[in-house]
Design a protein around this nucleic acid. Structure first.
Length: 661
DNA sequence: GAGCACTGC
């Protein structure tokens, strides 16, 4: 997604009128003294920096000039997304006239562009959390700016909690929390709760942005079907409004593809000499060449309509948008702690998201936003959507907190505490995996090493077991392949060819061994080449990512197993690998019923083998699976055949308890 | 014979 990478915050500044004359003209410049004063005086500064204020690029430079980097100290600025961390760093290095990796650097997974001279460091918030494992007080940083904190991503929330704790032990540390207006007071309360004199701890500073006004239009009456209404609105704008491209927000691929073709069909009725419409889809699962198409200028006499998921809400900025059409819906992940089942459902957006979407129309000139719902419906929307930490599987988070030295996770100060059921469920699983003991303390070495691995705990456990079981070479490949998505290309036009190619690699014992075959074939016969991948209907980018992930995982294993590289696994059978899988995935064991559906012991839910699985339409007895996804039915993905005896042996107490219920 | 919002280590 190289071209998408370009279109981030750094690019937004490039498009600001007057930016190139001098960054002195950015709104933040007028607040330089006030900001430095606030940050010097208060341990915590909540910064309300509107879009286009220049906070992300300028504030770290002010702090650098203001003496916060003397004594070899560094300023950190964290971002929820990798692309933002890299592009902003490149932009700032250019502004300061230094090479990236010298005074200004960035650090994201697989890419560390920092050096001994680095004083301003942009990084993902997940990366800073990793650093805290090694340096619990983050002592090399004088200032930590948490950007986009209002997005409330899982890792941002955990980071805020950790920083709140660190601050008590490091009074000289300065925190800057960058927030949207609505959440500023919440962050203020969060950082000052329990303080004797709150007025001395934190302050709020606001900086105006540089955005043009956006005129908001609502429906008079609610509409039955926002898809058809969206298409009508596109044509209304096209025929009645002035120049400018349209951005339409829908929930997912299916809707988007439908709308793109509807617009295509209906645009044939436009007068051949009048301006035409070019509709383009945009979602993360799209091949990158098609994603890039949204940045191309439209052909002569055409208006561009980009039909997008919420990827265009914050991750991707497309220049030239003057009209936004907002369906009012988004797909969000939900997690049921009782069943352990994840689902993806379309839900109404929050007011904050609606505002963010509308703002996409006012980047280059005054714009218009058409909301496909009534103003009454808008009033009834939640202020913000539920933070991720309240709707996720918390096993990885709790393991991480324990590794950071937070023994009592129930008393940890989260910005928003997760529901107790989520915590209980996560602790149960971690206990069964042997990561925590009877007192919920992290075990050594298993728990500690599991926390080091950047994997789901079940997979971490499996990988650690594979070293003892003599199949780590194979399990590394399997682990890497299950973490990257979309390995098999299944476009509608080439579906059959894809299925056929997949069958070439298939193994009757299940999807894990099939994935191993694909990985091995790609790295040996395929020589890691794009052409080979294409010929076999495999996603080259996904496979290349699997190679990087595998390399990284190998280094983690090697750290505690010196000379591992020489200890090749010999005579590895599929059975040895599947037995090893059971050691991490026993909680995801299921038995096939005579009708072909699956049941987890002790549970009622009827599970179905996903049709993408090698195991689809096959009769077996016991399986372990990687995950459950909810569609029209509950589907399990990535399965392997196992034997009951292995479950009893490898699953320890957990499985026995489940069966006994 | 079904379908994948978006991130991240």
């Amino acid at each position: 997604m190289a071209a998408l990478d370009r279109a981030t915050e750094a690019e937004e500044f490039l498009s600001q009128p007057g930016f190139y004359q001098s960054s002195v003209l950015l709104p933040i410049a007028a607040h330089k003294r006030a900001l430095l004063y606030a940050i010097t005086t208060y341990p915590v500064t909540i910064l309300i920096g509107e879009t286009g204020s220049g906070k992300t690029t300028q504030l770290p430079q002010f702090l650098h000039q203001g003496g916060f980097t003397s004594d070899e100290k560094t300023i950190a600025c964290t971002q929820p997304r990798r692309v933002a961390a890299t592009t902003v760093a490149l932009r700032v290095a250019e502004e300061m006239g230094v090479r990236i990796g010298d005074e200004v650097g960035y650090s994201i997974r697989f890419e560390d562009m920092t050096g001994p001279k680095t004083r301003i460091k942009y990084m993902t918030d997940g990366m800073l959390l990793r650093e805290a494992l090694v340096d619990p007080l983050l002592s090399r940083y004088s200032v930590i700016m948490v950007d986009e904190a209002h997005e409330r991503s899982l890792s941002t929330d955990v980071l805020l909690g950790i920083l709140k704790k660190i601050r008590k032990k490091r009074p000289e540390l300065r925190l800057v929390i960058s927030s949207a207006t609505l959440q500023a007071e919440d962050f203020m309360r969060y950082f000052t709760e329990g303080e004797e004199d709150a007025s001395k701890v934190a302050t709020i500073v606001g900086i105006e942005g540089r955005a043009y006004p956006v005129d908001i239009q609502y429906l008079q009456e609610p509409c039955e079907d926002y898809v058809t209404r969206a298409v009508e609105t596109v044509f209304d704008i096209h025929l009645k409004e002035g120049d400018g491209d349209i951005l339409l927000f829908l929930t997912g691929r299916e809707e988007i593809d439908r709308v793109v073709s509807l617009i295509g069909e209906q645009s044939s009725s436009l007068h051949p000499r009048s301006p035409q419409i070019l509709a383009l889809p945009l979602y993360a699962g799209l091949p990158s060449d098609q994603q890039l198409a949204v940045f191309d200028p439209p052909p002569e006499n055409h208006r561009k309509v980009i039909v997008s998921t919420n990827i265009a809400e914050a991750s991707v900025t497309i220049p030239g948008i003057c009209y936004v059409i907002d369906s009012g819906f988004v797909k969000l992940r939900a997690y049921n702690p009782y069943t352990g089942i994840e689902s993806l459902t379309a839900v109404p957006i929050s007011k904050a998201a609606a505002t963010q979407r509308a703002g996409r129309a006012g980047r280059t000139k005054p714009g218009k936003c058409y909301r496909l719902y009534t103003s009454t419906a808008f009033d009834s929307l939640e202020q913000q959507s539920i933070p991720e930490i309240q709707r996720s599987n918390l096993a990885p988070t709790i393991l991480q907190l324990k590794a950071l030295g937070i023994d009592n996770v129930a008393r940890f100060s989260f910005p928003t505490p997760p529901p107790a059921e989520l915590m209980v469920r996560a602790l149960e699983l971690l206990y069964a995996l042997g990561a925590v003991d009877d007192y919920a303390r992290l075990t050594r070495p298993v728990g500690v090493r599991m926390a080091e691995l950047p994997l789901d705990p079940m997979l971490s456990r499996t990988l650690l077991a594979s070293v003892e079981d003599g199949c780590w070479e194979q399990m590394l490949s399997i682990a890497a392949m299950t973490t990257v998505q979309n390995v098999f290309i299944t476009h509608s036009d080439s579906k059959k060819a894809g299925e056929q190619q997949k069958r070439m690699f298939s193994v009757t014992e299940g999807d894990h061994l099939t994935l191993l075959n694909v990985y091995t074939a790609f790295t040996t016969r395929g020589k890691k080449e794009a052409k080979w991948a294409r010929d076999h209907m495999l996603n080259f980018k996904a496979l290349s990512r699997a190679v990087s992930v595998r390399n990284q995982l190998f280094r983690y294993l090697e750290r505690h197993n010196p000379g591992l590289a020489e200890k090749h696994c010999e005579n590895v059978t599929g059975e040895r690998i599947r037995k090893c899988l059971v050691k991490g995935y026993f909680a995801h064991a299921a038995r096939m019923q005579p009708d072909g559906t699956l049941r987890i012991p002790g549970r009622e839910e009827e599970l179905w083998v996903h049709p993408s699985s090698i195991m689809f339409n096959r009769k077996v007895e016991w399986v372990v699976f990687h995950e459950v996804v909810e569609g029209k039915k509950l589907f399990v993905r990535d399965l392997s055949v196992v034997e009951k005896a292995w479950l009893v042996e490898g699953g320890g107490g957990y499985w026995g308890v489940k069966e006994g219920r």
